[in-house]
């Protein structure tokens, strides 16, 4: 199904943003908030994984039901998961389309990656204190 992806701050993201290695940050920023009716239509239950794909690539997130999300849109907290599929183009403003990326969403049995798996995929090396 086609959706418009919105990203934004949540208080949990704000609290965990200082500890990006923590499981809390990873699980908060890999959530995909959707309207329950959209989830019903796709046959996805709360907490199950979905594959979200844009022109830039795809990422696996955990679906989370939220009445406050407008049907036809998904909301993903700011973080490395959403950024994995947001294009780097800025339409000459310096600002990527953080709140209006067209995506397709489908149910999947793949698992979510951890933050550092994502980082290593892009060429990063994790540092463990």
């Amino acid at each position: 199904m086609r959706f418009l992806m919105n990203t934004g701050r949540t208080i949990k993201q704000g609290i965990t943003v200082e500890c990006k290695g923590s499981p809390g940050y990873g699980s908060e920023t890999s959530r995909c908030f959707m309207h329950p009716l959209d989830m019903m239509e796709m046959g996805v239950c709360d907490g199950e994984c979905v594959r979200v794909e844009s022109t830039e690539g795809a990422i696996v997130l955990a679906a989370a039901a939220a009445e406050s999300v407008t049907p036809g849109t998904i909301f993903v907290p700011y973080g490395p998961y959403a950024n994995h599929i947001i294009p780097g183009a800025t339409r000459s403003t310096g600002m990527p389309d953080f709140k209006s990326t067209p995506v397709t969403v489908e149910a999947t049995t793949d698992r979510r990656k951890t933050v550092y798996e994502l980082m290593e995929e892009m060429g990063g090396v994790a540092y463990h204190c």
Binding site: K20, E56, Y78, N83, P87, G88, P96, M122, G123, G124
Partner: peptide, 17 residues
Amino acid sequence: SDPAAHFPRACVEHLAD
């Protein structure tokens, strides 16, 4: 600041390079 967490992937990949 923490661009790797907040920038689109294309930017982070270049940072890695």
